[in-house]
Design a protein around this nucleic acid. Sequence first.
DNA 1: CCTATTTTGTTTTCACCTATTACAAATCAT
DNA 2: ATGATTTGTAATAGGTGAAAACAAAATAGG
Lengths: 399, 399
Amino acid sequence: MSEDNVTTSTTQGRDPASLRRHNLRTLLGHLHLHGATSRVRLGEITGLTRSAIADLVAELTERGLATEAGPSQPQPGRGRPPLIVSPRDESAYVLALAVDVDTVRIGRVGLGGTLLRESATQYVPLPERPEEAVTVLSRMIRRETEAAEVSPLAMGVAVPGLVRAGDGVVTRAPNLGWRELALAERLREGTGFAGPVVVGNEARLAALAEHRRGAGRECADLVYVSAGVGVGGGVITRDRLLTGNTGYAGEIGHMVTNPAGHACHCGGRGCWETEIGTDALLRRAGMVTPGDRNAALAELVSRAHGSESEALETFRGMSHAAAVGLANLINIFDPCRVILGGLLRPTLLYAGDELRGALEELRGLPELPVELCPAELGEQGPMLGAAEAAVSSFLAGME
Amino acid sequence: MSEDNVTTSTTQGRDPASLRRHNLRTLLGHLHLHGATSRVRLGEITGLTRSAIADLVAELTERGLATEAGPSQPQPGRGRPPLIVSPRDESAYVLALAVDVDTVRIGRVGLGGTLLRESATQYVPLPERPEEAVTVLSRMIRRETEAAEVSPLAMGVAVPGLVRAGDGVVTRAPNLGWRELALAERLREGTGFAGPVVVGNEARLAALAEHRRGAGRECADLVYVSAGVGVGGGVITRDRLLTGNTGYAGEIGHMVTNPAGHACHCGGRGCWETEIGTDALLRRAGMVTPGDRNAALAELVSRAHGSESEALETFRGMSHAAAVGLANLINIFDPCRVILGGLLRPTLLYAGDELRGALEELRGLPELPVELCPAELGEQGPMLGAAEAAVSSFLAGME
DNA sequence: CCTATTTTGTTTTCACCTATTACAAATCAT
DNA sequence: ATGATTTGTAATAGGTGAAAACAAAATAGG
C-alpha cells in the first residue's frame, strides 16, 4: 500500500515562484537537519543541478541564512575542492522556552540545531496567576532578544499541558493552573515579536527533538514515551509529528491498561500513569510519598545505578506494567523505534531484559523487532523540541 | 504547533516539469474526490489561472482521464456558462479486489469513485494452497480486464491479514493460510498487468474508503474500528492513512484492555478482540458457538433490531468493553470522528447511549466532543478502499 | 616541475511552466 | 437590442531549473 494522499498538500508549488520557495525550503531544511553540506552533495540530494544549487545557495547567503566556505579540512580525492554550505547560527536562530512548574528554560538555538552559548536556564517560580506568568515570560524573552543584534526567526514554547494546535492556546495545564490561555497571542503582544510563535505540549516537542537530534535520528516512525508524575508521549509518523484534530494526539497517560487498577485523578481507573507514574514507582519501592518526590526518585535511581537489589527489583516490577502500554502503542503505530524518557529510561537501563521479555510475551508480532532506546536529550528535550518546532514554523512561512 | 516537516516530501517538484505533474495530480485528485467541477472553481481551488487550468484540463482530456461538457443544468447567475470538467469513469477505472475466506469481491471503480455496473461479486471458495489461490485471483482479474476495451489504471487488493507496505507482501493471513506471499508480484506475473498493484489490509483500506466515500468525508483525522472475529482498524491522519514503519500500523485487535481477561490466540491475555469480538458477543448472548457463527450473529442483530430486550442487553453489555478501547484510541489519536464497523455498528445503533456514557466516564478530555458514527459502506468497504488505494497509487505514479 | 585527470564552480543558452494581458464568446438584466 | 458579467482563448512575458560548454582548483604520475 503505497498510497499518497489524493489532494497533495498545500504547502508546495503551483507556479514557478512557489517552486523556488519549495526548493529553498528543502535546501535550508536539509542544512538545518544535517549540517554543513557540499554543494554537489546538495544537488545529489535534491536532484537539482549545480547551477540551480548555486543560484539557490546564493539567495540563502544573501538572506543571512547560510554561509559558504572552502573545506575546513582537506578533502580526500582528486578534483577541485567543493564549497561547503553551512547553516548560520549566530545570526539565524530561534528562541526556545520550556515552561515547567518551578523552572523556565530559555535558549537560543541556531539553524543547524546548535544550542548557542547565550542560552541560559533561569529558575523562576511562576506566579499563580497566568497573566503574571505571561509577563514574566515576556520579560525573559525581551531580555534575550534585546541582547542580540538580530531578532530571532521564530519562537517556540513547550508547556506541560494541553495545547491546541494552530492557535497556540493552552487549553489546560493543571500543574501551572492555566486554563484556556492564549499563550502564543499573549507572548506576541507582550514582546512585540512579529514572527511565528508556536506553542506545544512538552512531551510532543520532546518527541520531535529526539527525532531530529536525539535517539530517533534517521527513524521515520517512532513513539516517544516519558513517565513522570504523569505519562506523556509523542508520535512521529513519516518524519512528522502526529497532532490529531486538535493537537492533543499523544495523550497516552490515560490509556487504560488495567481496568482493575487504581483510581486516577482524571476520574478513570487503571490509567497507565497510575501504573507506571512516579507515585506508582514510589509505591512499589515502599517509599510512601515523603516530602520531596524528586529527591526520593533520585535516590531510587542512584541506588539502582549502584546495583542495589531492592531498587533494581522495583524497576523490574514496573516493567510488566510498562510493557502492557508499550505493546499497545507498538501494535497501534508499528514504529521502528520506541524512545523511553523520564522514569522509563532507568526502567530500560536497569530492567531492560524484563521489559523486553514482557514485550515479547505481549506482542502479537514477534516478526518485527522494535528497538527500545533510552532518550538522549533528557531534561533539555522539551526546549530543544520547541526550537525545532520554531524552525519548522519559520521554514513553513518562508518568504 | 503548526509544524510541517522540515525536509518536504519527495513527491513534488524541483523542476518545471514536475511542477506540471504536481498540478495535474492535484486537478485529477480533486476531480476524483469531489466529482465534476467547473474550470473556474478548479482555478479557485488550486490557485491557478484560467489559462493554466485550460491547458492542464486539455492534457487530462487528451489522456482520456477527464471530459469537458457544458453545464448539464442551467446555472444561476449572469455570465457565460462555465465548462464542467468531469472525471471519466468508463474508460478510466481501477480494478479492486477484496479477498475473504469464502468470498472474493471484484469490482471496477471509475475515477470519481463510482462503482461501475460491470462490477460483480463472485463467491469462490479459495483453495487451501496460496499458489492456487493466486491462480484463481489472476483468472478473475483477466476475465474482468479482457471484457473491457481499455486496461485499468491500477489494481488494488484488500486482504484480511498483515500486508507489508511498499512491496505488497502478505506477511501472514491466518484465516487464508497465507504466509510471506508476495501477492502484488504474483498477480503482476499472473495477469501481465504492468500498472501499479497495491495490496493492503482490509481494515486499513475500509478506513480509507470510509474517509473518502463514507462516514468520514470532510474529516481529516479519524479512527475506524471494525469488530468481527478479530478486531481491525485503520487511522487517517491529516487525510492520510497511517501505515507505520512496515505497514502494520492499526493492529488494534491485540491492544490489551483487560489484563485479567480471557486468553487470546495470539498468546496474550485480555486483548481487545477477546472482549468485543464475535466470540465475546456470542458468549454474552449465551449462544455458545453453534454451528454457524454468522447465522447466530445475524439472528442476534435482527432480534436487537426488533427491540428484543435480551438482544439489546447483550449489546449494552458489550458497550463498556468497547468504550475502554475506544477511549484509548481517542486519547492517542485525537480524531474528530470515530467510525464503527462490523459488530460495533449494531453496538452503536442499539446501545449508543451506554457506549457514549461509558466513553464520557473513561475519557480524560470531555472538552472535546468526538463524533461516533456507524460505518456507511458495510461489506463493500475493503473493496472500495482497495479501489481508492489503487487510484492514489496511479496518481502518485502519473507520467 | 609539468601534464593529464578529476571534480567542482560558472556562464550561457534553452525549454518548460504559469502569469499577465487583451480580447472573444455566451449568457442575463434592463 | 444593449450593457454588464462571467467565462474561454490567444499571445506575450517572466521566472525557473536543465543542459552544455567552459573555467578553476586540486591530485596523481611521470
